[in-house]
């Protein structure tokens, strides 16, 4: 298993985490259903505004899922930051993980990483309480046909 993500989106996640430090930052990268391509970066508000907890506002959550539905997208990546611990899913992260198909990205802004130091950027699958870390492959851009192919296939299935 591997998460392939473009440089711009990877950097945008880190920038968001630094901006919201010391609170946890959170968001989604949506992509065409079945494509496994994180294409549309959607930073979300952490309604908990907490250094140790994040939660999408319930109204924002509904809007987000409606919009993805309308665009035939799914959450390819669900990301959040830890601001004083490592970029590894906590027991809370595992218990509350509700998207078995998503790549769960964690970044850590601890130890001054919020100020510009290196930020740990790691990705996991979380299914039925099981955590599996996966490789993160950062690319300059997605192969031109990766998204188009998925969209075409999606249409063909409809």
């Amino acid at each position: 298993m591997v998460l392939t993500i473009d440089r711009a989106t990877h950097d945008a996640i880190i920038a968001h985490a630094r901006r919201d430090h010391p609170d946890e930052a959170c968001g989604v990268v949506a992509g065409p259903i079945g494509s496994d391509v994180p294409a549309r970066f959607i930073p979300m508000l952490n309604a908990a505004m907490s250094p140790t907890f994040y939660e999408f506002d319930s109204g924002d959550l509904l809007k987000l899922y409606r919009e993805m539905d309308d665009r035939d997208e799914e959450p390819v990546v669900v990301y959040h930051s830890h601001t004083s611990t490592e970029a590894y899913p906590s027991r809370t992260d595992i218990n509350l993980a509700g998207e078995p198909g998503a790549h769960y990205v964690l970044v850590s802004t601890r130890d001054g990483a919020d100020q510009g130091g290196p930020v740990d950027f790691r990705s996991y699958r979380i299914v039925d309480g099981e955590v599996t870390e996966e490789e993160v492959r950062v690319v300059d851009s997605y192969a031109d046909d990766a998204i188009t192919d998925a969209a075409t296939q999606q249409k063909a299935e409809h």
Binding site: E24, C26, V28, M44, A48, S50, P51, T52, F53, Y54, E55, F56, S58, L61, L62, Y65, V78, H80, H82, T83, S84, T85, P89, S90, R91, T92, D93, N95, L96, A97, G98, E99
Partner: peptide
Amino acid sequence: VVILPAVAGGAVSGF
């Protein structure tokens, strides 16, 4: 009626 799992988590323990 729409059912959606919360998207939530974090370093805190206890949930």
